[in-house]
Amino acid sequence: MGGILVYALTNEGAINKNSLGAVSAAAKAAGELGTEAHAVVVGNVGDDVAGSLGSYGATKVFRAKDASEGLAAPAVDALAKLFADNDYDYAVFGGGLLGFEIGAGLAARVGAGITAEVTGLKVDGGKLVGQRPILGDSLISESNYKGKGVLIGRTNAFEATQSGSAVAVEDITVETSEQASKVRLVTRGEQRGADVNIEDANVLIAGGRGLGAAENFQLAEDLASAFGDGAAVGATRAVVDAGWFPYAGQIGQTGKTVAPKLYVAAGISGAIQHKVGMQGSENIIAINKDSNAPIFEFSDLGIVGDVQKVLPALTEAVKAKKGS
């Protein structure tokens, strides 16, 4: 009875880091609940890879081999079948885009309560409680489930920790739902634009929609050059989607996670999905013309001003300082 099922997202034979975190957190909670955490992978994932989820605390791993990886609907079918067969109480997801879609679909199908953006799992009175920041992270709310619960983690909220050892993988056969038969993955994981490296940078100058136009990324590039070696330029999803900057330089939930010594956010509002990818930076400077922008709530130095004015002047000042 009971138990927790965790969805593990994979791509090109590797398990997503946030899924490993979700398995670790679920295994810990399962221990406190006196039950087990199981994991499921969708697609033709190798035995070793799938089985390695055991090392993060999953006591059983299921695989829906024939279902298409990278789509939500076939995964909902697989998880719903496992819920029907094993009567789980909870499903836990590491977040990301598919985690949200699969979790929401599953909750509707099995009649579960759902919490998105979960940052903590708590066990209270023999039940799993999801903790989630709300209203611009100003409060933490706790979700109590009347019956089954679906908990979707916030990106980078759960750390992957090893406990246990690899387990055997059990293949399952899943019937395709009507919804799943009407969706087809054409291409997955296309990298748009040049391959830029931002993960090794000590200094990151990140640009957002507030830069105003693609060509204004030059202002960020100039400041990065002024800092010299070890400095690079990154971006928000808004500008990557607009084609102003390559996807490889995107920071956040569906981009990279970075933690440089210095992070300069230029014309970036500070949406949660951006914050989760950069809040580990040692020093954060934000330049934004709106004094109410959320980014100021988690920056160490905030400049209320126009990036068009501040960036070029700062570039000159940094050059002068370095030359002195």
């Binding site: 791509n11 885009l97 569906t254």
Partner: peptide
């Protein structure tokens, strides 16, 4: 035919 950014880059998906 829809495009969206998922966790590994841009995905193109077709739905009926």
């Amino acid at each position: 035919t829809a495009e969206r950014q998922a966790e590994y880059g841009y995905d193109t998906v077709e739905v009926d």
